[in-house]
Design a binder for these strands. Structure first.
Lengths: 191, 191
DNA sequence: TCAATTTCTTGCCAAAAGACAAGTCGCAGA
DNA sequence: TCTGCGACTTGTCTTTTGGCAAGAAATTGA
């Protein structure tokens, strides 16, 4: 059994038995880079755990450019909360950036876990709380930090993104164009 | 007794008795516009409910300009979650935009309510969940909508902000300068 | 009521960012 | 190995946005 469940749910004291129940409810899938887990306009029905690889979420801006809104790295949950939990068509598309190994579970089965595994709903509560802090921090960073600093921060905190995602996706995630990011890199290399 | 508690906590079925307990734990305060509820660098110790008036949160950007990050309207909770719940110095400052009537409670007493009022923690869970959806939506709007549309959306959803906050604060909240917003308004008036 | 201050508008100029395109580089597949 | 494609860099030009400042309008306080 993969130890991804241990990693993802480590913040709460689940018993080995609980982890086993959780793991058994998931199905392992391996998909190639460029695959879609969820497309704009669809309502999400699955919850994913990312064991290996890189996934991104993106939307189209008012000029129809793809803007990457999020990167998901190993041992993270890959979902569009507004679509999965509110049952709305997603504004965002989920696409693999590299070949990936994921574990999926239907939303229905996921909800069952809330009842069958004590402490799982507590874990959900914790996840939402953490999301509030990180979403807020991200929005503060966009206004308080320069593009260069946001790039350096991303490089420091999640280097696997910089290493594996194309420049264009990284740039749009940082709120700039690939041309600008290329120039930022050039300036940084001079120092 | 003010019915603000009824308004704020209406999403869960609190009994009249529960509401009374909650209300009694708060203290009413009236403050003039321009007052500070929390300053950058301080750790928040109070939780506020806004009965009347308008409050904003702001940070300083990399050029030391004030950027309004949030507006709080009547019957909303006025807090900086990262500071209040994580006990960190706040990056954001809370300032009244107009004269205000607020009800405050210390963080300590607030935590007591979680234990003494059944369902209060459920309300907290709901609040965090809602925040995730709205914070995410806000970040999507910034990339998918033009500044003009963001202005129109704000005008439609929270006209009291447009009516009561100075242009400069509205502009920075929308991610543009007051000069640009003035020009957007001019263009809109031509239609 | 009147003066003083703040807020908002607008013109001009500068700076920053983006669009576009050409050219280089490197990798993947035939 | 060679070819072709996608990714990245870089130069030029354009567009957008912002800075600044002057003036008008509105608000505040004495």
């Amino acid at each position: 059994m993969s130890d991804i469940f241990q990693s993802v749910y480590q913040h709460l004291q689940f018993s080995a038995e609980d982890i086993k129940v959780i793991a058994k409810a998931h199905q392992k899938i391996e998909i190639t880079k460029g695959s879609f887990l969820l497309k704009e306009g669809e309502t999400a029905n699955e919850y994913y755990l990312l064991e290996k690889g890189l996934v991104r979420a993106f939307v189209h801006d008012y000029n129809n450019n793809e803007i990457t809104t999020e990167f998901f790295v190993e041992n993270e949950i890959v979902i569009v909360p507004a679509s999965l939990f509110q049952r709305n068509p997603s504004q965002e598309t989920l696409q693999t950036v590299t070949d990936c190994v994921l574990w999926k579970i239907s939303f229905e089965d996921f909800q069952h876990l809330f009842h069958s595994v004590p402490g799982f709903s507590e874990w959900g509560r914790l996840w939402f709380t953490t999301q509030v802090f990180s979403l807020k921090q991200k929005s503060l960073d966009i206004v308080t930090e320069t593009a260069t600093n946001r790039y350096l921060k991303l490089l420091k905190e999640k280097p696997q993104i910089i290493q594996n995602a194309p420049l264009k996706q990284i740039a749009s995630f940082l709120g700039i164009t690939d041309t600008s990011l290329s120039r930022i890199r050039k300036d940084l290399s001079k120092i």
